[in-house]
Structures are given as structure tokens and as C-alpha cells.
Amino acid sequence: MPAGVTAGYAVVDVTTGRTVAQRQAHHRFRSASVVKILIATDYLERRRGTIPAGDMALLTPMLRGSDDDAATALWRRGGQGEIVRRMARRIGLTETAPPPAAKPGFWGYTAISAADIALVYRYLLRRAEPRVRDFVLGNLRKASQCARDGFDQFFGIPRAVPRPWAIKQGWSGYGAVPPVKCTRARATSYRIGAVTMGGNPVDFGRPVLHTTGVIGDRLIMVVLTLQPSGASFTQSAERVTKLARDLYLSVA
């Protein structure tokens, strides 16, 4: 990896569950928007019956366009960190943890690892109820190129791998204004120092850029990265895309 970049990744065969490529797969990173998969899955598993139109108006843009305001509303209603604890117990996640106690509303500070997020996708594909699987992955297959905060979320998997794919991206630490603004920017800046959570320090200061998803019907790919301080979004996206392409070519 380039100097100053920390990467953890896992590529899993959907059919067998075998990990076919990995590096620092158990290293913890702050989740940024990747946690939105857990927020949506938790909501759907607790909700029975028809999803109200108002809730649909939160879930759909949160999954497709990574809408932060929608995530915040659902995070508060679901009990904040309790969402993460419930999903960790249900799926068997061992490196995923809620945000620090001093920052309960900062869903993007949830700790995750590549290995755990690969388990989340495998859970959706193999163990979740069909209605939950179809809703979450169906929306991730329709991810928009321009996120609600104006950032281009087609880096990593969507730039490096041919369709079909279902993706959930994450980014944090690049400010509120994207290099090329697609829509009105509404990003929240998350910047505090590193806090120790479990096995390794989770860095909440340096920028993160993550690409995760299901490729076709046979691979799960999770690439989590911590970028150098001051790195631009464009530079970070290029690095993550190259890593995703190299990984895909090595296992395709």
C-alpha cells in the first residue's frame, strides 16, 4: 500500500463462505456510512407488516444515496448504539462496536472490520428473511453515482468491477464540499482523536474511504482504508479503486 495508507480487506466466495483474499481483515476502522447497512437491516427485522411511506422515504435514500439525515433519524429511533449491539449479537460480529460513549449520536464512529462486514453481507444473502435481503440488496444494486451530500460514490467496486453489483460505500474526513459537487452538499465532518476500542485503536481523525458490496452472485468484497492526513478525496478514491481492481483480478 502507498505510504500512510492502512487497508483491511476481505474477499469471500458467496457459495462456500471461504475467504479467498484478505489482509488485516480484523483491523478496526470507523465505519462512516457503511453502518447504514446495519441501520436498515435492524429496522426491517424489527418491523413487521407494511413499511410506512415516511420510513420508506428514509430507508431508500439512505441505502441508495447514502443520505446522512435519513441515517440520523433512523439511528435515533432505533436506540443509537443498541442497533449495533443487536446486529452484532444476531450476526455474530466480534469486532463491530457502537460509537464511543461520549459520541452516541455519531453513527459513523461505529467500529467495523472487513471480516465483520463480509459476515454482514453473507448474513443478508444466506440467513436474513427474503423480505429483508431483497429490500437491502435491491436498493444497494440501485446505488446512485452521486450521493446526497454531493460526493461521487462510484469509486472502488463500481469503478473497478463490471456489473452487476450491490454496493455500500463510506467516506469521512474530506470536509463538506466534494471536489465535484453532484447535488447540494450536506456532509457532516467527523474529526476527533483516536480512541481505543477493543483490539486496536480506532482512528477518528484521519480520512477514511471504504468500498463494500456483493459482486454478481459469487463474491463479497470489503475494502476499508484509512488515508493519510490531508489526503484529497480524488486521490483516495483512485487508491481504493486500484486496490479493488487488483483484488478482483486476483480472484476472478
Rank of each mutant, 00 (worst) to 15 (best):
S172H: 04
L243T: 05
R206Q: 13
M221S: 11
F204R: 13
Y190H: 15
F204S: 07
A237I: 01
A185M: 02
A166E: 02
F233P: 02
D152N: 15
W171A: 15
D217F: 00
P162T: 00
D152F: 05
G175Y: 08
L219D: 08
V202E: 02
S232D: 03
V208F: 13
T234V: 14
F151C: 10
W165F: 15
Q169I: 08
S229N: 11
P162H: 08
V240R: 04
G199C: 01
S232P: 04
G205V: 06
Y190N: 13
V240M: 07
P158W: 05
Q153H: 10
A231Y: 05
Q153M: 12
Y190L: 14
V177K: 14
L224D: 01
E238D: 14
L226I: 04
H210Q: 05
I192P: 08
G170W: 10
Y174W: 06
S232A: 03
G175K: 10
L243P: 00
T212K: 06
W171M: 15
V223D: 03
R206W: 12
F204A: 08
R239Q: 12
K242M: 06
R191G: 00
L243A: 10
V161I: 15
V240C: 08
G205A: 13
V202C: 03
R191A: 14
T211G: 05
G175I: 05
T211V: 03
P158N: 07
T196M: 04
W165T: 05
R184I: 08
I220N: 01
A187V: 00
L224A: 02
G193W: 03
L209P: 02
F233Q: 06
V202N: 04
R159L: 15
C182E: 02
T225P: 00
T212M: 05
R186Y: 07
F155V: 05
N200S: 14
A194K: 08
G175D: 07
G175V: 03
G193L: 04
G199T: 12
P207A: 11
M197V: 14
F154N: 13
Q227G: 03
L209H: 08
C182T: 03
Q169F: 04
T225V: 03
D152S: 13
T188C: 02
G173K: 10
A166M: 04
V223I: 14
L226E: 15
R239I: 08
P179I: 09
R206G: 08
I215S: 09
I192Y: 05
K168E: 03
G170Q: 11
R163D: 10
A166D: 03
P228D: 03
A160V: 15
L226H: 00
A166P: 01
R184P: 04
G216Y: 06
V177I: 15
V223A: 12
Q169D: 13
T241Q: 09
H210R: 02
Q235N: 13
G230M: 12
V202R: 07
I157T: 08
D203T: 05
E238F: 08
